[in-house]
Amino acid sequence: MARIQAGIGCSHIPVLGFAHDTDKEQTDYFKPAFDGFNWTRKWMKEEAKPDVIVLVYNDHASAFDMSIIPTFAIGTAEKFNPADEGFGPRPVPVVEGHPDLAWHIAQSLILDEFDMTMIGEMDVDHGLTVPLTMMYGDVEKWPVKVIPLAVNVVTYPPPSGNRCWALGEAIARAVESFPEDLNVQVWGTGGLSHQLQGPRAGLINKEWDNAFLDKLIGDTQELRKVPHIEYLRETGSEGIEMVMWLIMRGALGKSTKALHRHYHVPVSNTALGHIVLEPVDNSVPPSPTLEGNNDAAQAMID
């Protein structure tokens, strides 16, 4: 049986990918940002060793233009190439997918009344590849399979925080019903506070960001109720990406324990946040839907 071993929250700031790719991790400007990942890189390599990551991120007008705006899309391909975001693709390994688990999750989620979009072919941008770099550093090949889960946080309205949390819970139920023994992590990426547009650009809110990190730990569900307008006012127009972290948090079940935490300002225009969480007992509530609770329906998708 597959199980969710840990959840990671991490900003996906493009310039960190650039710093890595051009060997600038140890420069004065970037060192404090990268140092916060030393613990995680070691832990990933020596202890956690996940088989698969469900990597929640958003596309930044790379794979999707304005012609299609999926709210929740799951990548079911064998592989995903790093996207050319305007200056050539990042020189990082091709991302290997896990089509069996991806389709299992997609089908399970739909029975659980999350109407997913399935993507059979897609390039992945910095939103997905930067967190991989932060957690694995320099590698010939990513030592893990990745299921991209793209969330619309660009065109309003994005999904609510509550919906994201509930999706995480449904992902946890789906993972648990996958027969193969797999060590799975769920990552939520983006944020923390930043605004890339208009006269208010450059906004950073350390207090709010840290309160957000605090509330990912333990059994509080307060973050489910934070409305979009609060992210916008308090954390800048692009701070809304933090709703994606709630998918990760929801997937960890009732309660979490923090293994590692890091916050640093600034990286380019953005507050860098990073947290590693462990589920206390992996308990998520049963599916509230008829199909999701229905044994016969479950049997058809296994």
Binding site: S193, Q195, Q197, G198, P199, R200, A201, G202, L203, I204, N205, K206, W208, R233, E234, T235, V265, P266, S268, N269, A271
Partner: peptide
């Protein structure tokens, strides 16, 4: 920075000092 009415240098200095307060 061009959207903020600040020069690139001013904007960069603001970011390095912890960003724009809300």
């Amino acid at each position: 920075s061009t959207m903020t009415g600040m020069s690139v240098e001013e904007y960069q200095a603001m970011m390095n000092a912890g960003g724009r307060s809300p």
